[in-house]
Structures are given as C-alpha cells and as structure tokens.
Design a protein around this nucleic acid. Structure first.
Lengths: 152, 152
DNA sequence: TGACTCATGTCAGCATTCTGACATACAGTG
DNA sequence: CACTGTATGTCAGAATGCTGACATGAGTCA
C-alpha cells in the first residue's frame, strides 16, 4: 500500500543486494531440493564430500557455513540413513574423515542436476565477461571482510 | 589436515561464492552489532523503518527476508522496549503501519555507523566501476531467479 | 447483495541452528 | 618430560526462524 520497489537508498546498497541475491538463491535451491526430500545444508554437505572426500566434521561445517555442532547432528542423521560413512575410531587424532556411500553418491546425483538448473537460470542473461566480473567482485568482498576485524 | 583453500570446483561456482560473501557479510555485521546489543534482523527492521516510515509487519518481513511471523515477534519486542510504535487499531484494513520512536531513531544511528564501516571495508579495493559491475550482476541474478519457477 | 479470492495480523507447535561446556588429542616451547 | 595453546567431536540447553492454522478486512465479479 505504500512502497513500490524502486530506489530509495536500500536499493543502492550492495550489502542489501547481496543479501537479496543470496536469499533468492537459497529459496530457489530449497524449491528444487524439496521434492527430493533434501535441504540446502544437506545437499551442501554431500556436494562437499563428493569433491573433497575424507573431509572431517569441522571442515564440512566451515565449508557449509554452519557451526560444527550443527554439522554434527546432520552428519549423524546422514550416517544413520546410510548416505555417508565414518570410521568408528580416529586413525590419528580425533578427526573422523567422512566419505559418501554409494547410496549417498546416487542421492547426490539427482540433487546436483536440480541445483545446476538453478545456477544455470541464475546466470541466464549474463555474459561470460559479466560472470567473471561478478566472480572477481565477490572474491574481493570476501577477502576484504575477512582481513581487518578491529580497525576503527 | 587435508584441504588448503584453493580451487577444486566449488570455488569456481558463483552460487557458492555468493553464499560465502553473504555469510562473511553477515558475520561482520553481527560482530559490530553485538556490542550494541542488536542482531542483524533487528537492525534491518529499524533501517527499513527509517527509510520507509509506516511499513507494515508483512512489508517489513519481506524487506528483511524473513516470514511475517518472525517479524511479528521481533516487532512486538521492539514495541515493548519502545523502539517502534504501532497504532492499536488499523485505520483501514488490518494493516498496522509501524514507525520509529525517537528512542528507536537514536538506537539506529549508532548501529548505522557501525554497519556503514563494515560496508566500507567490504568495498575497499573495488573501484567504482567494479562496484557498478557487481551491482548490475547481482540485480541480474535476482531477476533471473525470481521469474521462471517451473521450467524444465 | 453474496460468494470468492487474496493479504494481513496473530497464535501455537516444530525444526533448525546457535552458544556454552567438556574431554581429548596433537604441536610447540621451556 | 611437563605445560600451554589450539583444534576436534560431542552433549545439553537456549534462541531463533519456520510451517500450519485461524479470523478478519478489502477487492472483484456475477
């Protein structure tokens, strides 16, 4: 009843736009993943394991941007349902390297197709050059945000 | 113990990078907002109201990318603590337009300074042109993700 | 006018994630 | 060797957000 949708000030903030894009991406992923009975974090974990077999719980947590406690409950569920396997005891230290089971790999394949369609849709209308620009820009933001934490 | 941090495949995915950047931004905002006893959603709500006074609960929810139920509990807390005010009854329909109180405005001012410093840091190392490129790219992604939802 | 559709505010229950805490294991230093 | 610091896996409780549901008000159309 009051606002339309074009620029006041928030719409010119890169931070806000970043949140908006991320939110839209997440929603789109949830939508295509739901029919497969999979959540985004669920998928992220499987994808991480496919690309880097043997990742530990803590490493997976960092890769999926959740706490290691959250990843732990997810991993326990995935292990219980036979999607991933972890040794009962650590060979060295406390680190338990996780791996996909054949079942986990099969499950991931379908999800990957669905997710890739989302990413393709997201990139539609952008040239290769524009994609590279976006890539570089996002990389730069991440780097800048990570470095100085107590600068005035 | 196993991975270092440079490119396998995930690191070449714009979707993953988007999530990473968004996550880094959120963490940075939480860090500077915590000393002020404010969460990101909390701040978003106040900022939204400052720029578009009279927004309703549902509109605020959409602007902050949460459900209207979540925004409702936040609004009730903000109202209870005297940061925002809403009329007891709707003038028209059921929509209750919310507004910042002087106290809310004061609280927001400090937060805005903190958040702006984060955004400045995020944009450090990017030229104006690069910022524009990133802006356009993100806009394009949001648009593409929102349109077709049931395409094969 | 009446029926139908849609959006809103709100309550209740559930799910997911986070914070806090603990024991353990390795690496570095004296 | 003992000590300190850092990282891990895990358990428990708290917070936060979401889904489901309901009643209400406005707009549309016959």
């Amino acid at each position: 009843m009051s606002q339309s949708g074009d620029g006041v000030d928030l719409d010119s903030s890169l931070g806000y736009l970043l949140k908006e894009a991320s939110s839209a991406l997440r929603a789109a992923m949830e939508e295509v993943l739901r029919p497969l009975g999979m959540t985004v974090t669920h998928y992220s974990c499987l994808e991480l394991l496919a690309q880097r077999p043997g990742l530990s719980n803590s490493e997976l947590a960092r890769g999926a941007f959740v706490t290691r406690q959250s990843m732990n409950v997810l991993l326990q569920a995935l292990e219980r349902d036979g999607y991933v396997s972890r040794p009962a005891e650590a060979a060295v230290g406390k680190v338990l390297p996780a791996r996909l089971t054949p079942r986990g790999r099969r499950s991931l394949e379908k999800a990957t197709v669905a997710v890739r369609s989302v990413e393709v849709r997201m990139l539609a209308g952008m040239s290769e050059a524009e994609q590279s620009d976006a890539f570089r820009a996002l990389k730069s933001m991440v780097r800048s945000l990570r470095e100085g934490n107590d600068a005035t």
